[in-house]
Nucleic acid binder design. Structure first.
Lengths: 157, 157
DNA sequence: CAAAATCGATTACAGTTGTAAACTAATGTT
DNA sequence: AACATTAGTTTACAACTGTAATCGATTTTG
């Protein structure tokens, strides 16, 4: 943490395909192109050239760093998978009315497989949340993109 | 529900811009092009022609239906916003190791504004979840995209 | 009824994404 | 040293996206 600003927001947009590449890098920390290609040839049936394209684009975007080793590169990243996931989900939730976030998370939990420990942690964070829970979540949607403001909208949420 | 098959999965991929249009339709159920354009000119500064393009593409994709009224259309959809959101989030979670889902939801809750009622509902669904909670969530990632299988991976999650 | 406004459809066009072959330089092999 | 392999770079190209102007038909307005 040598004095850099710790920016939580991952600004780079990446595509689904690029995400596949990133997952290999996150899982292995320092990887060669060959290792990435092997994994994704398995999973996605990508030709080596295809994977190379995505790697190249990620380097150009600054998501991957390269360290020369002989004639090849070893790839790595300084963006953590967790930060990236949070950032991606944030963007999705930007498209959802704040009032609906709770229900959306309920749905999410419903269809997920969770461990006892997960449930424990979730209960704990909910306990914390009670401290700053509100009576009614304020809607910040623009008028016309949500019917919260029509009346008090309680029937809808 | 006249005998159609109720398919929960929303297959159509839509873009961010198209999502903006859909939100207007969801908020108002039956809208004219003019109403959609008005909202998005406000929010996104889109020229009328731009919004028209997105509406047209959504119709072509089958996400929007049209009903003629005079020389214009009234747009509507039979995909619910909630189903769409769930479907979108599912796709995102497909990129996340099952073992990490719990922690991801914890993060999501942490940064959301929730009402007391939301928290109530969340606690309730967690209570249900305890019935089918597991000791350890099985990872289904392909090898190389997650280090769960290296050893027992407990230190990572 | 003529003119203006409006609607949906068509066309435009640059940038992004998915998919991959070809090229060039370096490395490993015989 | 010659040849084969491999790595990264360049080029290709169609489909999808964002952004919008234009066009042709129709409706509203004066």
């Amino acid at each position: 943490m040598r004095g850099e600003i710790m920016n939580t927001e991952v600004d780079s947009k990446i595509t689904d395909s690029e995400w596949e590449v990133m997952r290999v890098v996150w899982a292995q920390d320092n990887v060669t192109s060959k290792e990435i290609r092997k994994v994704l040839e398995q999973k996605k049936n990508w030709k080596p050239a295809t994977t190379k394209t995505f790697i190249g684009r990620l380097v150009k975007k600054g998501m991957l760093h390269t360290e020369t080793e002989g004639n090849k590169y070893v790839y790595s990243t300084n963006i953590t998978e967790n930060e990236f996931i949070k950032s991606t989900l944030n963007e999705t939730f930007d498209n959802i009315c704040n009032k609906d976030v709770g229900k959306t998370i309920v749905d999410l939990i419903s269809k997920s497989t969770l461990s006892f420990q997960d449930i424990d942690r979730l209960e704990k964070v909910l306990e914390m949340k009670k401290k700053d829970a509100v009576e009614e979540v304020p809607c910040t949607c623009v008028p016309g993109q949500c019917n919260c403001k029509d009346d008090n909208c309680s029937s809808k949420h």
